[in-house]
């Protein structure tokens, strides 16, 4: 159906399409330049970084990768556990709340939303110790729970807001028709809102995942056993062991980024599915 619609939108000027592609390609090039630079840096030694930062010429120090891999590899699975757990919990509670704030009417709604919303603007540079004290009193140290629970607690306000906006934007009739069929509100959520929200869920998942993936201080202090710690700890060791060796460190970053790239492809597929689901309505 979608392709038919597009066929009808075909315009007579092919150069207009070319111009669009050119614009986006230029933007992509600018966006991807740091990544390119990062890959280039990752095969340089200290000297090449200082003396020829932008140059691309041999020797390429591939040993950066073997050394960095030794620091990071054993910790990757921990990061996966932390990031997957945080993402699942955060996304599910956020989607539920976003749906309710965008769709339902209930007393105290604005107050409750206000509580979440306001938190977005409170800079939290000094709550490390209070947060830690809380995690300690709950007896959850040295497990993935502090990372997962605190992530779910702190990273949702903006995304609840996003979900709410997208849900509220949908035509009311869509939900009404289901409601009349005797669907429960949860079924509405599950079978209508979730598919509609899929692109935003994908985007949020990426954000939460990347955030936990790169988080260092919080998992460091709440997970004491080295063998349970995430890969950012490995990166910190790598940095301390090779001071000022940005090439080596960047190699570590590149390795750490590979799982993220896989995730992007997967979530972007969700994004596409979300779009087809989106065209169901009306």
């Amino acid at each position: 159906m979608a392709t038919q619609v597009q066929a009808r939108r075909q315009r007579p000027f092919p150069w207009a399409e070319a111009l669009k592609h050119a614009t986006i390609v230029l933007v992509c090039l600018a966006l991807l330049f740091p990544l390119f630079l990062m890959v280039m840096m990752s095969v340089k030694d200290k000297e090449q970084i200082v003396y020829e930062f932008f140059a691309i010429r041999p020797p390429f120090h591939l040993e950066n990768y073997t050394i960095a891999f030794g620091y990071i590899a054993p910790l990757i699975s921990n990061s996966v556990v932390l990031a997957v757990g945080s993402t699942l919990l955060t996304v599910s509670v956020t989607a539920l709340a976003g749906y309710a704030f965008g769709r339902l009417e209930f007393p105290l709604k604005n107050l409750l939303f206000g509580i979440l919303f306001a938190k977005m603007m409170l800079p939290g540079i000094m709550n490390l110790i209070p947060s830690f004290t809380l995690a300690w009193k709950l007896g959850i140290l040295d497990t993935p729970l502090p990372v997962i629970l605190f992530c779910a607690g702190t990273s949702q306000p903006f995304w609840v807001f996003v979900m709410r906006t997208f849900v509220a934007q949908q035509p009311r009739e869509l939900f009404e028709s289901m409601r009349i069929d005797g669907a429960s509100e949860f079924q509405n959520f599950r079978y209508l809102a979730v598919p509609l929200l899929r692109p935003m869920i994908a985007l949020m998942s990426i954000n939460v995942f990347v955030f936990v993936w790169n988080d260092y201080i919080w998992p460091l202090v709440t997970i004491q056993s080295f063998e349970k710690r995430p890969l950012t700890v490995g990166l910190a060791y790598l940095t301390q062991a090779n001071p000022g060796d940005y090439g080596m460190l960047t190699a570590g970053y590149v390795i750490a980024a590979l799982p993220l790239l896989v995730l992007f492809f997967i979530s972007m597929r969700q994004f596409i599915e979300g779009l087809t689901a989106g065209s169901i309505k009306l």
Binding site: L112, I115, A152, P157
Partner: peptide, 24 residues
Amino acid sequence: LGLAFVAPALLLNLVFDWYPMFDG
């Protein structure tokens, strides 16, 4: 009904974000 949907998010936010923040 509303609470059933928003309570998980709200509780997590109150306990793990707002509460430590009160210290500040």
